[in-house]
Design a protein around this nucleic acid. Sequence first.
DNA 1: TCCTATACGTAGCGCGACTACATGTAGCGG
DNA 2: CCGCTACATGTAGTCGCGCTACGTATAGGA
Lengths: 105, 105
Amino acid sequence: MKADTLRGHLDALLLAVLDGRKLHGYAIIEALSLRSDGALDLPTGTVYPALRRLERAGWLASEWDVVSGRKRRTYRLTRAGQQALAAERAQWREFTTVIGGVLEP
Amino acid sequence: MKADTLRGHLDALLLAVLDGRKLHGYAIIEALSLRSDGALDLPTGTVYPALRRLERAGWLASEWDVVSGRKRRTYRLTRAGQQALAAERAQWREFTTVIGGVLEP
DNA sequence: TCCTATACGTAGCGCGACTACATGTAGCGG
DNA sequence: CCGCTACATGTAGTCGCGCTACGTATAGGA
């Protein structure tokens, strides 16, 4: 997929993939690739800073855990994150309606 | 609508609104606003440079005409522009499928 | 006469995803 | 046991592009 089309929708993707489960950064990248049939292959330089940004915003919470000698920072949605996800989903629907309405009337 | 979500889709909008008709810049802005029920209100500083960029890319052609003392630069799709529009529409469908698939599985 | 709508355009900013790099462990094949 | 790959996290700097904020100018109505 063309780079940069994601712009403005990355937060929604990250929140959505964490809906109902806890995942660490690397697993988030894999989960997004899986859910999109390989269409989404986000670089770590995109995902990790975004996760920290979402945590600073209060939408995610993280904790360290160690699995077989490897440290992982596991993220989960906060309650505010749940609400943010709902808002992002609503905005996504509006966005597709508006643009789609122009592109294929 | 949140600013910047448009990023990467502006070209598609401009090509789509010129599909099958000739319009000048100001009319393009109005047409987009109309087709989106007012959701799209693009500033001239966004549209005019984009039109020139699309013309440089060979997707649009323009000519000056004067209507009641006002000069207008009227744009129309080139054949390459038609093909580009088809490609943009295909990419839009793929984009919505991918992101939508992640957001609401 | 002044204000609004029409009409085109440029300069510069800022945001956010990207590229490229840095660091380190676990496990496997040879 | 050595090197390679997968796993895992992170930072620094770049760059494209839509936006803000201007500047210019005419037509027409209040």
